[in-house]
């Protein structure tokens, strides 16, 4: 998977314009915009630090919901001190789709979340014709507050085409102040807070299947 930071490196070296993010910061005053950029730069640095960590303790927790179409794996990565630095969550939901989510933590606080969801549906135009969709959202958090969401979304008639398309797609910055964004941010925050506390499969299943 192409991560945001691979895209960033591409831009920095001037190699890949395809990864260019379209940053429109709405009506933010110039100084606020500059502040956000500084914080995003720090977040990118934290990301690189977590990715470079060696000898992390890895724990896979498999879960399946009874009576609900959902199953998946939650992978915790923690330092030897027990401090969680990254959580990967891969799950399949009913409706021909699923998602991979990655949560990055520093000193117990989430600073970056990547949610990559994909699904297929019938086009409804011609019998058997389907449309596959992939959507990536990147959430940047600073001091517990979401400061930026970037989104890429592509569709294709075949699932195998999605990876290539999304790597070429441009990021779109979402307005953080719409009702939809607020709802999504609250949900990501809730998950980011709870996930590090889930230490066995039962607890993971309880959270995802029972919403507790």
């Amino acid at each position: 998977m192409r991560t945001l930071f691979q895209c960033q490196r591409g831009l920095a070296s001037g190699v890949s314009l395809l990864c260019a993010a379209v940053f429109f910061a709405g009506n933010l005053p110039a100084e606020d915009r500059a502040g956000v950029e500084t914080e995003v730069a720090s977040i990118r640095q934290y990301y690189v630090e977590v990715e470079a960590l060696q000898d992390l303790q890895k724990l896979d927790l498999v879960f399946k919901c009874d009576g609900e179409p959902m199953e998946g794996v939650l992978t915790r990565r923690a330092k030897s001190t027990g401090q969680v630095v990254r959580i990967d969550l891969g799950y399949l939901e009913g409706g021909h789709g699923g998602a991979d989510e990655m949560y990055y933590y520093r000193d117990g606080q989430v600073f970056f979340v990547l949610v990559s969801a994909s699904w297929w549906q019938f086009s409804g135009k011609k019998e058997g014709e389907t449309i596959d969709t992939m959507r990536e959202r990147r959430y940047y958090f600073s001091k517990g507050k979401c400061i930026r969401i970037l989104e890429k979304k592509v569709t294709a008639p075949k699932q195998e085409q999605l990876r290539a398309l999304i790597s070429k797609a441009e990021n779109r910055e979402l307005d953080l102040n719409t009702e939809e964004s607020k709802e999504v941010i609250a949900e990501v925050r809730r998950k980011a807070d709870v996930l590090p506390r889930l230490e066995d499969s039962k607890a993971v299943a309880k959270f995802f299947c029972e919403g507790e």
Binding site: P69, E71, L92, G94, H96, F122
Partner: peptide, 16 residues
Amino acid sequence: NTKENLLRNFGSAHPE
């Protein structure tokens, strides 16, 4: 398994 459930949608059929 997950691959089969993606195909079979956990046994929950759509209108089709």
